[in-house]
Design a protein around this nucleic acid. Structure first.
Lengths: 191, 191
DNA sequence: GAAAACAGTTACTGATCGGTTAATGTAATG
DNA sequence: CATTACATTAACCGATCAGTAACTGTTTTC
């Protein structure tokens, strides 16, 4: 096993991710993936036992790249932990404004494979939990009395903004969510 | 046109809605719809030109029944307009706790048909706008200075809570969102 | 009661679904 | 140079996709 080089495999996952993100999972057939990546179906199935395995690989790639991008952008936009929690929504606004923005891949994956014990749903949930943990870290560093609760509220605002931005094809939700987050941060109890 | 009785047609839409809600749109074939409803495919296509038309009919039914249910539940749970905006999240908690809960049909529809000008996405967006309008009405009645902005924030909390509840198969997000909404309401400017 | 008009069925269309088989090309090993 | 091992391909599998054609009843209308 391990026919194609590591870089070709990575490129396959990268292109499959793009197809799934733009067209959806069920709506994207493996024949299309083969055609668009230039990798024959048989070669794909040498490295991924099933379509589901390929989807999981794209989700893992997306988790890494997106979370990397978001956390770095938050850190670049603000100095303090509290400022970073607010800057989250500025980063989201930038994302929403991109032509390629089509909502959250994990929300879409979870919507199409929603069973609690489905590996795809589990992968999506894991991504959200990692974000939640990071928000909770920032909230703890900022000295809030209940960092987990505050992080949960921030995450809810983030997911709601993404869903509405994707549906309305507008970045306005990022601004609304930021104002809400600002009020939550200023009125939350501190240690 | 108009072969089957009005009640049979309504029953077909009702069952198709259930199938789409549980399995997804692309993942639910018209053969399955025919099998599960007991209505032959030809009979279905006598009344719905395409699968997309059937989907739109299920979305319109869902908009009517769900919005009716939610608004009535909010009104039953609280006396004042401000109380209703908070009770929204108690109603959501009840919904999340149901075995049949599988997220928001409109979010799922928009995720699978996300083009801005796609009729399915437009229908989903229309549903959210109607909810936004109602929240804004309540906020105006409650005497808030910027009812539209507050309504937008409430809507973001609602959508975020739904997405996270569906993904995590837990009703906890309703409680977190309610606490956030409570803080927003108490700190928002009034006329 | 004849004749349109219509609701309903089964059986089918070509295309595509996820996935595999059998064969070919190619590179490394003895 | 022969052979083993492996990467890759075209062609194919049965099932299912959305949608339709041809046909059979049942009403409605005159």
């Amino acid at each position: 096993m391990g026919a194609m080089s590591q870089s070709k495999r990575a490129e396959l996952i990268r292109r499959a991710l793009d197809l799934f993100y733009r067209n959806g999972f069920h709506a994207t057939g493996m024949d299309l993936v083969a055609r668009e990546t230039g990798v024959s179906k048989t070669a794909i199935y040498k490295h991924f036992r099933t379509k589901e395995d390929l989807i999981l690989a794209t989700l893992r790639l997306r988790d890494e790249t997106f979370r990397n991008w978001l956390l770095r952008r938050m850190a670049d936009l603000a100095e303090t932990p509290e400022g970073q929690l607010l800057a989250l929504f500025d980063a989201l606004a930038e994302w929403f404004a991109q032509d390629s923005f089509r909502g959250c891949l994990f929300i879409k994956a979870s919507a199409e494979y929603q069973d609690a014990d489905h590996p795809i749903n589990r992968e999506a949930l894991a991504h959200k939990r990692l974000l939640l943990d990071h928000f909770a870290d920032l909230a703890a560093q900022a000295g809030f009395a209940d960092p987990r609760a505050l992080a949960a509220q921030i995450l809810i605002l983030k997911e709601g903004a993404i869903v509405l931005a994707a549906m309305s094809h507008s970045a306005a939700a990022a601004r609304d969510a930021k104002r809400a987050a600002g009020q939550l941060l200023t009125s939350a109890a501190r240690i």
